[in-house]
Computed example of a mutant assay.
Amino acid sequence: MSLGSEFTHLDATGAARMVDVSAKDVSTRTATATGFVRLAAGTVAALRAGDVPKGDALAVARIAGIMAAKRTPDLVPLCHPIALHGVEVTLEVRDDGVAIDALVRTADRTGVEMEALTSVMVAALALIDMVKALDPGAVVTDVRVEEKTGGKTGVWRRGG
């Protein structure tokens, strides 16, 4: 069996390629990804009080996450450029940092898992950029897909 028939992103010689999805059916597809930015207690307090010197760190991170989802094919080499129909990014300040959730929706021939993951990562990076003067030890952790829907595989949920 050739590599190209085992792995869809490899051709028969083993070279990377973009998968042809033109024969797939268009369907509504969603993906939810999450992540966490671990922060020092003082940084959490500054976020809660709105005292981050650079400004509204959560708003900047939210917009960055939305923009990132739209730019995913520019960053991930084999990712298809698809029309996104919705991107929701939420940030929740917790006692030990900020939880980030991204929900991405489309009606297309391929899924939006990479867009959701990219959204979370860039939101996390933007948040760190906003607070790095307060907290140079901030850490991005636990970035992962939680759920995807649509396509021939239907619904997939982490842990179930």
Rank of each mutant, 00 (worst) to 15 (best):
E147I: 06
T141A: 15
A126T: 13
V145Y: 01
A15E: 11
R94E: 10
D96Y: 05
V87P: 10
G154N: 04
V37A: 00
A46F: 09
I100G: 02
R48H: 03
S22N: 05
L75M: 07
A59S: 10
D11N: 14
A23N: 06
D56R: 01
R62I: 09
D101K: 15
G86K: 03
R158I: 06
A57G: 02
P81R: 02
R38W: 04
K70F: 14
T90D: 15
A133L: 10
P77T: 13
L91M: 13
V37Y: 00
A33N: 05
T153M: 00
M121C: 15
A124D: 00
V140D: 10
P81D: 05
K148Q: 11
G160E: 04
R94M: 08
I63F: 13
D129F: 08
A61T: 08
T43E: 10
V44I: 08
A138Q: 06
K24Q: 14
R105L: 13
V89I: 15
K132E: 07
K152V: 08
A68M: 12
A68C: 14
D135F: 07
G55N: 14
V143T: 05
S27A: 14
G35Q: 00
S22Y: 09
A83V: 13
V93W: 04
L91G: 12
A15H: 07
V140E: 08
P77Y: 13
L58E: 03
A107T: 10
V87I: 14
M130H: 02
P136L: 01
C79Y: 14
G42D: 14
A40R: 06
E88T: 08
M67Q: 15
R48I: 01
L10I: 04
A133G: 09
V44P: 07
G4V: 11
A57S: 05
R29P: 04
S5Q: 06
A59P: 00
D95H: 11
R17Y: 06
I100H: 00
V89T: 11
C79Q: 09
G86P: 06
I66R: 03
K24N: 14
T118A: 06
L75C: 02
T110R: 03
D95I: 10
A45V: 06
V143G: 02
L58K: 02
E115V: 04
G35L: 05
E88G: 11
I100K: 01
V76W: 06
S5L: 02
G97C: 09
V21M: 12
R158N: 05
F36P: 09
